[in-house]
Nucleic acid binder design. Structure first.
Lengths: 350, 350
DNA sequence: CTGAAAGCGCTTACAG
DNA sequence: CTGAAAGCGCTTACAG
């Protein structure tokens, strides 16, 4: 910046004003300064700006477990939304652990993030934090800022299956403590007609009871009349699907299978997997927008509260969840009334 | 910091020295300063430090496509390695596009990252960048800093399959332009004995020829004697596996199937998928260590080169690749000679 | 429309 | 062992 000022022969204040386009500089000077900046390959110093303005233009993204198969979609959407708004994204992995989650948040704060998007570990609440926080979980979680409507997604699944004539359902969950999974299954049950039957199995519970079990024992349920199996995740649907296929059960001719999340493999397997696709782009946009509004809204901060000690005020951001759409992806696995499978556009790898 | 200085009654220089533990302050003063800092909930300002030291302690991670199913493992490993070394990780998604990749790198530079880990888009080379860069690709890519030994991984797969008695192979790739995929298939072929036969199909090529094809046409190959199908990714292996199952072929009794990458679903499907697991933790550690060494090594930078115009010197970091291990995960899909499946510990979702 | 000055929070020679 | 001072690069009132 001093470089530019010298080269053009003006003050650094003028350079700053010209480059930021606040319109306090004559048009031709702006022109000249811009040109020189470009020529010099000028890159503004974030550190300088951050120190002066008190804002880093960086957001922190706290994930419960990066290795979650859904994470790529989330991270990508957040990165795009933040980037469009002029913010960078610093990631932190809480590794499924509440303590690590706290540490991860602390690390991000130390790095000076302006705000936090937190996808909490299994219904964890987060303590008070010294910057705005947008929580992404499920509508039934207190403090939730934005999320897909998992309940509604579950309802769409069972409505679809009932339309196909199914009346005897098996729901497959993994962890009974998960708000998201409970909402999904809750929605599934809520949309059931009175002429139906259903049971629910929880994989974790099964494994705790019999740690070395290798099958889900689906055949018993099928024999007892179940014709539709709806899982809370594509991962479990995949498990169900391949277990049935190995046992010689035809999907969807004998049993329909559905998943949730539209993971990368859902359209790739045979039969392709009927599932629910959440609009991550929308979720990310809403979360980021809410966060940025909060960040950029001038606040009168009581210096006594902020400075007396570290116990800062936590402001969890609220947003309008209603806009997020859940899309039922009808594919072959729920069959039979299915349009010819579109060739999967993905399946791209390295 | 001034707060602390005032409270304790010393200069801010002393506070800085005490807190950084450079040992220029008396023990009891250090003690007192530490205590007051903690009490005040002091969080050092990254911006101030960055401005003064010229280093942000943030690394940029450029990914070819965050939605790649392998990304979670990579991102997680990088985040942990960086975090252990005291660095934060800023992510950028190049969305499979070379232009976006360039923009993504530029954005990260503007945010003041000290170094970059780049996983390049399909054998893309990256232009010159004004900070150290560690490239993670495949050993045969020029400029590669660290990577798994994909060739060796491929060789392990076919050695294993030959040990099981297979002599007639089908290799399934996706994109002929991918260095990684070529290395994997190259390794598979190289380890083949002279008494074997093999063919290779490329999914993208098939789709280009027949855009609306829905099956890989595996049955023709099986009928012509293929007994082992090795894919370059678990995603394709899954496609192969389910397509065979749907056609009534027993896996592994009639045909063995193997994948690559040990994606999250590999141990979950039935039969569980034999695959190759790359040690991402090691890759990340090596990449980050190489990068940090480069960053923290004092360099005499010719100010004429750096400042004359933006054309900065690119220093691609080299590292020792030989340490990265590839682990063959023998599971049910390849074998008959397989130990009883361990119950999958994962399958955890939201 | 333009410039001189102050200051964000830190660290690092340099004196004492 | 401790302190006063300078300066990293920027922006923002405030003068002119």
């Amino acid at each position: 910046m001093t470089q530019i000022a010298k080269a053009v022969g003006v003050s650094s204040a003028t350079v700053s004003n010209a480059l930021s386009g606040k319109g306090r500089v004559s048009a031709d000077l702006v022109e000249k300064i811009r040109a020189t900046a470009a020529e010099l390959g000028y890159v503004p110093s974030n550190a300088g700006r951050a120190l002066r303005t008190g804002r880093s233009n960086v957001l922190g993204l706290v994930l419960p477990d990066i290795s979650n198969p859904l994470f790529p979609q989330i991270a990508q959407a957040m990165e795009v939304a933040a980037s469009n708004a002029g913010y960078g994204v610093l990631i932190a992995d809480s590794r499924g652990d509440v303590t690590t989650q706290t540490q991860a948040i602390a690390r991000l704060i130390e790095r000076g993030v302006d705000g936090l998007v937190v996808i909490p570990r299994r219904g964890t609440r987060i303590g008070s934090v010294s910057c705005p926080v947008a929580m992404v979980d499920t509508p039934s979680t207190p403090g939730n800022t934005v999320s897909a409507d998992h309940w509604e997604g579950g309802a769409e699944i069972t409505r679809h299956l009932q339309d196909l004539g199914h009346r005897n359902f098996l729901f497959v969950g993994h962890d009974q403590a998960s708000n998201v999974q409970n909402d999904r299954i809750g929605g599934m049950k809520a949309a059931l007609g009175s002429d139906t039957r259903h049971q629910t199995i929880w994989i974790e519970t099964l494994l705790n009871a019999q740690p070395d079990r290798t099958s889900l024992g689906l055949m018993d349920h099928v024999k007892s009349g179940v014709t539709a199996i709806a899982a809370v995740s594509d991962l479990h649907a995949l498990r169900v699907l391949t277990e049935l296929q190995t046992a010689g059960i035809k999907v969807p001719q004998q049993v329909s299978v559905t998943g949730f999340d539209d993971l990368v493999f859902a359209p790739v397997v045979t039969p392709s997997l009927t599932t629910v696709h959440m609009n991550m782009t929308q979720i990310a946009q809403i979360a980021i927008a809410a966060l940025i509004t909060e960040i950029e809204t001038p606040r009168t901060i009581d210096p006594n509260i902020e400075h007396k000690n570290g116990a800062a005020v936590s402001h969890t951001v609220k947003a309008d969840t209603s806009k997020v759409s859940m899309e039922l992806m009808v594919r072959a696995s729920s069959g039979p009334a299915v349009s010819p499978a579109t060739p999967s556009p993905n399946g791209e790898i390295l």
